[in-house]
Computed example of a mutant assay.
Amino acid sequence: MNIKKQLGTGILSAALGLSLIGGGTYAYFSDSETTNNTFAAGTLDLVAEPTEIIQVENIKPGDSMIRDFELQNNGSLDIDKVLLATDYNVADASGDNTEDFGQHIQVEFLYNADKLDEVIYETTLAELKEMTPEAVNEHVFDPLLGEQGLPVDSIDDLVVKFNFVDNGEDQNQFQGDSLNLEWTFTATQSAGEEK
């Protein structure tokens, strides 16, 4: 064989070998499996019942009013903490107020309706308005709800006593005034856990 034929046969053999090697890399067995996965978030659903806790008229210094209400966990997640934000506005009937009417309304959070003398925390509406929701939780709801918080489908009864404090001084400036109180309850979740 002459050298040209040997070179041609060698190149042709090399090309055939490379094509077989290249083609062989795509010849393999395979299998695949698809999984379907879901991440569904739970819900926090705190309900205060009734939504109007107190509405009274014609109060005078020395009057007290006891009201009870429920906090319900209607969600699918346990509630760790309940936070309370207080806001109010005063309608000054005669425009002569030199003091905040909220300083004269004392609030007592009680353990339950049967033990009205067991006060959890006592403050005024004015002081409550200035407190952070976290501080209110620490003083009021932590002692009431304890470490378990408010589990799913649970109800906790709360009792509040409002006192129009008679300070023994002239309180005529509050005659005819009204105070509109807004309490906003906020639930927070318990700590995350491995599922």
Rank of each mutant, 00 (worst) to 15 (best):
172 N>T: 10
164 F>T: 05
8 G>A: 10
156 D>V: 14
91 A>S: 14
55 Q>T: 14
132 T>N: 03
189 Q>R: 11
48 A>D: 10
122 E>D: 07
190 S>H: 11
81 K>L: 03
177 D>V: 08
192 G>V: 09
46 L>H: 01
96 D>G: 14
55 Q>W: 06
136 V>D: 01
98 T>M: 08
1 M>Q: 05
16 L>I: 15
128 L>Y: 06
84 L>I: 11
77 L>K: 05
10 G>I: 07
193 E>V: 07
84 L>E: 03
40 A>G: 14
23 G>T: 13
18 L>F: 00
60 K>L: 14
23 G>C: 12
160 V>Q: 07
182 E>A: 13
180 N>I: 08
147 E>H: 15
53 I>Q: 02
44 L>P: 00
159 V>G: 03
49 E>P: 05
93 A>L: 14
72 Q>S: 14
132 T>V: 03
71 L>M: 11
120 I>G: 02
124 T>A: 01
18 L>I: 07
75 G>H: 01
39 F>M: 01
82 V>H: 02
60 K>F: 09
120 I>H: 02
130 E>W: 00
90 V>N: 07
160 V>F: 07
157 D>T: 15
149 G>C: 01
77 L>V: 09
97 N>R: 08
79 I>L: 13
88 Y>N: 10
29 F>H: 07
65 M>P: 04
69 F>A: 02
36 N>L: 08
51 T>F: 13
87 D>E: 10
59 I>Q: 12
103 Q>G: 12
91 A>Y: 06
137 N>S: 15
48 A>Q: 09
63 D>Y: 15
54 I>W: 00
180 N>H: 13
163 N>W: 06
181 L>Q: 04
53 I>T: 10
31 D>H: 13
113 A>G: 09
8 G>H: 01
21 I>Q: 00
141 F>I: 05
88 Y>S: 12
3 I>D: 08
9 T>Y: 12
140 V>K: 01
8 G>M: 04
135 A>K: 15
37 N>E: 15
138 E>Q: 01
70 E>H: 11
10 G>A: 14
194 E>M: 04
8 G>W: 04
165 V>S: 04
49 E>Y: 09
119 V>Q: 14
52 E>F: 12
104 H>P: 03
36 N>F: 08
163 N>C: 13
124 T>Q: 00
89 N>I: 07
145 L>A: 10
129 K>Y: 10
50 P>R: 13
88 Y>G: 05
150 L>F: 08
78 D>H: 10
97 N>Q: 13
137 N>D: 12
1 M>Y: 07
163 N>P: 12
27 A>W: 04
182 E>P: 06
145 L>V: 12
38 T>Y: 14
59 I>L: 11
83 L>W: 02
143 P>E: 05
161 K>F: 13
8 G>Q: 08
49 E>T: 13
17 G>W: 01
109 F>N: 07
112 N>E: 13
155 I>M: 03
118 E>N: 00
100 D>V: 00
131 M>Q: 09
130 E>H: 00
133 P>I: 03
113 A>N: 06
170 D>S: 08
184 T>H: 02
176 G>T: 09
152 V>G: 07
5 K>T: 07
104 H>R: 11
25 T>A: 07
191 A>C: 05
83 L>V: 06
86 T>C: 04
168 G>E: 14
113 A>V: 08
125 L>N: 02
